[in-house]
Simulated scan of single mutants.
Amino acid sequence: MVIRAVSLQLWPVCEGYQFFGHKGNGPATLEYAEPFPVRKDKPSWVDRQMPRACFTGLSRNVVLLAVASLFTDISTEMLYPVLPVFLTQMLGASGSILGLMDGCAQATQNIAQGLSGTLSDRVRKRKTIALAGYFLAALSKPLMGLSTGWMDLFGARMLDRLGTGTRSAPRDALRVRLRMC
Rank of each mutant, 00 (worst) to 15 (best):
G163N: 08
D152Y: 09
C104L: 15
G145D: 08
A173Q: 03
S94Y: 04
L65N: 10
V13H: 03
T88I: 13
E34W: 06
R48A: 09
G163P: 02
F71C: 08
D160W: 03
T148S: 13
Q9V: 10
R157T: 02
R39C: 07
I3Q: 12
R161D: 05
P84K: 00
T76N: 11
F55K: 07
T148R: 15
M158D: 05
G92L: 02
C54L: 12
D160G: 04
S7Q: 13
A68W: 04
G114I: 08
S75W: 07
Y17K: 09
G92E: 03
K127N: 09
M90K: 15
R52E: 10
G57R: 13
N25E: 13
S59W: 01
R39L: 11
T118Y: 14
A105Y: 11
A93Y: 00
D47H: 12
P84R: 04
G117V: 00
L143I: 03
V85M: 12
T76V: 11
E77C: 08
F135L: 15
R157N: 00
R48S: 07
A132K: 07
G145M: 09
E77N: 15
L79M: 14
C14P: 06
R179V: 08
C181T: 08
I97A: 13
Y32L: 06
A105D: 05
G103W: 10
L159M: 15
W45L: 14
V85T: 12
R126D: 02
F71N: 05
M144Q: 08
K125F: 01
L115C: 11
A28M: 11
W150V: 02
S140C: 03
L143H: 06
M78S: 04
A169K: 00
